[in-house]
């Protein structure tokens, strides 16, 4: 089969083609499916690093500082920065590039901003596939900055190999973040704005959280069918291989603390490639992704298979309280199971 032109251009390093393909992926265009299929064998080489934490903690500034260091080590860097879509208008202001001006003009850097488009897990639905495209395009490192709204940012832990959780002193939300379960996804904890008063206190309380938690209590969780499932525990006696997230201080705007941070990232990467636990986690994520996508695909097909008149009649009956939702679902399932799915075109 001859290779798709756009795919060939992306693999050859054409930036315009890359930008266009990213748009197609983001818009979930039907023609991207074979393109993603063609690119998939080229993925798995990049180190994917997630950066999460509350708005204003300095995620974008840290991404900028990290990217500069990585470039100094001759590594090429792609960045995806996610900002929230306004639920009122569907629009968004994507302003993370403001903090990344220093990276402009470097052909070894590619920055893409994206909006969540209604997704709630800190990333957009298409982010994972866009990361794969950048991986296939040959970038050594992909940095993914999440929305950082707190509550439910588990998506990043499944997309990235190394997840940084960024805190800053004086925001008064350290405890919030911990409550929201953000700590569970941290591979490295970064106290940014270490030039601000209260930094040491923040470091201390985070260290305590990490150290008092017995390794087994640091069980990793992953959302699956809307439930949180623990990743299978390691056999007893294998605890040496557990990763303890370090707590590091940085001043992103002054490039301070970056050496230690990069060293910790490198260490975690090595751990990732050697640790059995991490492999289990990875396998669980692959399984979850498969089920999630299956769910989406089945839903889409199912809805297409339903005659619109039947749907509106059913809704009408439920509104009139003549039919309960559960029985309605049974009826709709029966309809599709007897008449089948329309053949895919």
């Amino acid at each position: 089969m001859p290779m798709d032109k756009l795919v060939a251009e992306v693999l050859a390093g054409n930036r315009r083609a890359l930008a266009r393909l990213l748009t197609q992926v983001e818009n979930e265009r039907p023609e991207v499916l074979p393109r993603l299929t063609a690119l998939f064998p080229h993925t798995g080489r990049a180190h994917i690093i997630g950066i999460t934490g509350a708005p204003g903690t300095g995620k974008s500034s840290l991404v900028n500082a990290l990217a500069k260091r990585l470039r100094a080590q001759q590594q090429t860097v792609a960045i995806i920065a996610v900002d929230p879509t306004s639920p009122f208008s569907g629009g968004a202001i994507l302003g993370d590039r403001i903090r990344m001006v220093e990276l402009a003009g470097d052909a070894g850097v590619f920055i893409r901003s994206m909006a969540t488009r209604g997704s709630l897990g800190g990333l957009a639905r298409a982010t994972r596939d866009m990361v794969r495209v950048l991986d296939a395009a040959g970038f050594d490192v992909v940095l993914v900055e999440t929305v950082g709204a707190g509550q439910n940012e588990v998506d990043i832990a499944r997309t990235a190999q190394t997840t940084l959780v960024v805190e800053a002193p004086g925001l008064g939300d350290e405890v919030q973040a911990i409550k929201a379960g953000i700590l569970e996804i941290a591979d490295i904890l970064v106290v940014n704005k270490a030039d601000r008063p209260g930094a040491l206190q923040t470091v201390r309380s985070l260290k305590m959280m990490v150290e008092t938690g017995h390794p087994a209590a640091r069980e990793r969780f992953a959302a699956h069918h809307g439930r949180l499932l623990p990743v299978p525990a390691l056999p007893a006696g294998d605890e040496v291989s557990l990763w303890q997230p370090p707590v590091l201080q940085t001043v992103a705007t002054e490039n301070t603390g970056l050496d230690d941070l990069l060293a910790a990232i490198a260490q975690h990467r090595q751990f990732w490639h050697s640790g059995s636990r991490v492999t289990q986690l990875q396998e669980r994520y692959i399984e979850i992704e498969l089920y999630e996508r299956l769910q989406q695909a089945l839903m889409q097909r199912f809805v297409q298979a339903l005659p619109p008149e039947l749907v509106s009649a059913t809704l009408q009956q439920i509104r009139a309280r003549r039919l309960d939702p559960q029985s309605a679902i049974e009826q709709l399932l029966n309809q599709v199971e007897t008449h089948g799915y329309p053949s895919s075109r």
């Binding site: 208008s89 994507l94 590039r97």
Partner: peptide, 13 residues
């Protein structure tokens, strides 16, 4: 204004 009109606006500073 463009955000409120449903557009995605990349602002670079």
């Amino acid at each position: 204004a463009l955000r409120d009109a449903g557009m995605e606006v990349i602002y670079t500073g």
